[in-house]
């Protein structure tokens, strides 16, 4: 008989319904990842205890960790399901793999959550270059390779939600905008043209839910799948905020 993998999934039918655990037993195949497990469950949604169930709802798209869709909690750790290789998971814990939805976002169903909060944050910090228009106006500003190397890691943020999930300051009692949004604000504040709207961004960063709500736990940077230097962005945001408040206070 082929090797079996035990997969336990936290399920929730609707936004406001309670949750329950379901256990699935799946055939092992070398090179599998967690999205493959979910695909196998979809094709044959039969639980170990209760028989026929429904496919587990989950978010997934590119399957190569660039789209940010498939974040979930796997064996207690937030990460992307596509890059979570079953062989590695079994090495750490041979008896089972546990899948849960992220906890900082409203659950839509099962492992699928609503991350609108994060995209709204990007609106608040005006995370874009305020160009005049899309007609031809020649190239963008020159940039040193060094500047590009600073900028590039921040541009890789795929709004996956790992940092938000890990941040203790994001909870029912706080309106913290989240590490991802702070980092994007810094990206555009440091862009030669983006900086023209620095003031607008700093209003959001220094306002309610801004940088002041960061507790400096530094969890965000540990879970970021793209190794984005989030704490560096936060430190920069702190400095910019001090300057901004100072300037505003003295009206210069």
């Amino acid at each position: 008989m082929s090797k079996k993998i035990n997969v336990t999934v936290k399920r929730q039918d609707e936004q406001n319904s309670g949750s329950r655990w379901e256990k699935f037993s799946l055939d092992y195949e070398s090179g599998m990842n967690v999205t493959t497990l979910l695909q196998r469950i979809a094709a044959n949604p039969v639980t170990v205890d209760a028989g026929e169930s429904t496919p587990v709802a989950y978010d997934a798209c590119c399957l190569e960790e660039v789209c940010g869709a498939c974040s979930m909690i796997i064996n207690g750790r937030v990460r992307q399901a596509c890059s979570a290789l079953v062989d590695n998971l079994l090495q750490d814990r041979p008896d089972q793999i546990t899948l849960e939805p992220m906890t900082k976002f409203p659950v839509v169903r099962d492992l699928l959550v609503d991350r609108s909060f994060m995209f709204n944050g990007l609106k608040k910090v005006r995370a874009w270059v305020p160009v005049d228009g899309y007609f031809d106006r020649g190239p963008g500003p020159k940039m040193s390779p060094h500047q590009q190397e600073d900028q590039y890691p921040l541009t890789e943020c795929m709004t996956c939600g790992c940092c938000v999930e890990a941040c203790p300051q994001i909870n029912d009692r706080s309106s913290f905008i989240g590490p991802h949004a702070i980092s994007q604000a810094i990206l555009f504040n440091e862009h030669p043209v983006g900086q023209f709207e620095e003031g607008e961004r700093m209003k959001a960063i220094t306002g309610v839910g801004g940088i002041g709500d960061c507790g400096n736990a530094q969890n965000c940077v540990k879970v970021c799948p793209k190794n984005i230097p989030l704490t560096r962005s936060i430190a920069k945001a702190g400095k910019m905020a001090t300057k901004f408040v100072f300037r505003n206070f003295f009206g210069t």
Binding site: W128, V129, V131, Y134, D136, R137, G138, P139, G140, K142, M143, S144, P145, Q147, Q148, Q151, Y152, T155, F188, H191, V193, G194
Partner: peptide, 18 residues
């Protein structure tokens, strides 16, 4: 390419900044 450059795409750069 010029437009995407203006929109902030982090294109790799030469030493002169091109």
């Amino acid at each position: 390419i010029d437009l995407m450059d203006r929109l902030g795409v982090a294109f790799n750069r030469t030493n002169e900044g091109n």
